[in-house]
Design a protein around this nucleic acid. Structure first.
Lengths: 343, 343
DNA sequence: TTGTATGCGTTATCAC
DNA sequence: GTGATAACGCATACAA
């Protein structure tokens, strides 16, 4: 892969590299003729400045790192879509890493990230992560970081989340209002901020409607299909099984739907189902599933925008960091069932 | 984001940068004591070599570019998962671009890719792409390229695909053998290699079983949900609607399932459905959908491995390029229905 | 207006 | 065994 350099142009045109550089950069302190001839030559031989040389010089890479638990998760792939969108417009490249829900892998990834000299980091924590020293260190060293979705209180930076409490509260209350009495909640890893908030919302809705909490209806679940099958079988081995399930994520909703089908438990006839999902999954699952829609794409975009704000203003200190809550939207489906329940 | 350099170490230890460099690289022509003290200092202050400087020197970036139509598509996100896996082990970073099924965007992305000096390119063509000069150019300039899934005959390089013809043939034949007479096929963009191969397989299966081709049952469809709804409504406005639908991708299968549900057409009671999907989607949709499973993860891994082969052997010419076909797997579900149909 | 010199971080090539 | 120097591609302070 050969590339033409400024030096080549200079040689060909009998100029110095600095003159060529100036011409290319559109400097005004240059002879219009020289400029034109340089531009023509550059055009003709498809000159493209070497970004690596620039990076070395300016000590920045024009790339941002993104660490997500799994790329192959509808929520995160859609968030990355949004991130890529913003980065593309800013002329940055997006470098992807997966933690695979492993704390160790996340730590290793943060090391790679810094050794790669990315200009900023977007991260959603792994389900195993309880200690965030690895991120604190980076942040203390001045790396702009934005946390999204799965955040930690211990890091003082911008964060973007959806309104997990409210979404969870609304979803649970919807189930209550449609007559459900035994509402199970399947949450993701108990370490995650999103899990905690969603459980809070679930409990708050039950409390508001004076429904006693049954601990056996609150399950934490990994993302594997076996895990969710196990959890659902547990729920249904209960003396009085749930009449509704509220799941905390895309994957759990999908897994739940599939397991229920396997077990021949009909949704929504036998059991009501509502899930936190991103917009695309919600659309695809319509109309069998009511959903609390998380703005995955927007979360990606918003996070990236905030990160670029930080990157482009690293000089301006001190910053005041904020946590941005994006609205969730409750989409109610199976209206026929709703009606019968509402009587 | 401050980083310690070789120069810093040299200054601190009263050595020259070359000595430090040698010590760090584990050269043998060096005093063991010097080496140890350098290593200790580097360890203590967490020295990390600057990959950008390395890149400039070696004229390679230790990164590979990946261009996919949409990250947020289960097939591609899983393929990227595989790519990331291999790249991670090789110590390469993965830079992601989306063409958004747009030819123009794809061309622009290839320009970005080269300007970024990636060491290789993995690409799956956009649905609009018919002209591949932009890739030919890069390839002629010596950039290692591997095409996967959506390929073009016009580029002479390694390619990795699933056995689209066979998968399609088997899926269609399965529908025929279970008694279906009017089998519709919903394909993706007609420009795509995968579409062509799958249509061929579909037609071949019909031909083998002496089923006349009904042009009105063969539809090409974009990925938007509106598009698929439109197509399905078209199919069912037919005087004699289909009794089976064979869809050509994850997205089409999901969209089809969702639309049929919306229209209150029951699967598999009213209509049999079979789709090309990746493993995870197949698992999630079980047991409602029989699937021709494409090895998305493996395709990502295999493509990345081949790309690294090319990257690491750029000196060895000439190469003989190959097209690797990965097996698809037919997973038959709804066995109860099958039985009744098989009688 | 243009050219020369320097530096970004690293390693390779030469000297000593 | 160690150090000085050049080079990768570019931008810029300074000199002309």
């Amino acid at each position: 892969m050969e590339h033409i350099t400024i030096k080549d142009i200079a040689k060909a045109l009998n100029l110095s590299t600095s003159t060529v550089s100036r011409a290319l950069r559109g400097s005004h302190e240059i002879n219009p003729d020289t400029k034109r001839s340089v531009m023509e030559y550059a055009e003709k031989f498809n000159y493209q400045p070497n970004p690596i040389a620039l990076s070395l010089k300016e000590n920045k890479s024009r790339s941002i790192g993104v660490i997500v638990p799994e790329i192959d998760n509808p929520f995160f792939s859609q968030a990355i879509n949004g991130i890529e969108d913003i980065a593309y417009n800013k002329g940055y490249q997006v470098v992807i890493f997966q933690s695979h829900e492993s704390y160790e892998r996340e730590v290793i990834n943060t090391q790679h990230i810094t050794s790669r000299r990315v200009d900023g980091l977007l991260i959603s924590l792994s389900g195993q992560t309880t200690n965030v020293e690895h991120l604190k260190n980076l942040h203390d060293k001045g790396l702009p970081i934005v946390l999204f979705d799965r955040i930690s209180d211990e890091i003082d930076t911008h964060k973007v989340i959806s309104d997990n409490f409210e979404g969870s509260f609304n979803g649970t209350e919807h189930l209550i209002k449609t007559g459900r009495k035994r509402i199970a909640h399947i949450a993701a890893s108990p370490h995650l901020s999103i899990s905690k908030e969603r459980v809070k919302g679930y409990l708050a809705a039950l409390a508001k409607h004076n429904i006693p909490v049954d601990e056996s209806l609150l399950k934490y679940c990994n993302y594997g299909l076996q895990d969710i099958e196990f959890v659902i079988d547990q729920l249904f081995s209960n003396e009085t099984p749930p009449d509704a399930i509220f799941t905390a994520s895309d994957r759990l909703a999908l897994g739940c739907l599939s397991t229920l089908k396997k077990r021949n438990i009909k949704v929504p006839e036998d059991i009501a189902l509502i899930g936190f999902t991103n917009l695309k999954v919600a659309a695809l699952l319509a109309p069998s599933l009511s959903t609390i829609v998380q703005p995955a794409l927007d979360m990606g975009k918003r996070s990236a925008e905030l990160l670029f704000d930080l990157i482009e203003n690293t000089s301006k200190l001190p910053k005041s960091y904020r946590t941005f809550k994006l609205y969730t939207e409750l989409i109610v489906r199976n209206s026929s069932v709703m009606k019968s329940d509402e009587e």
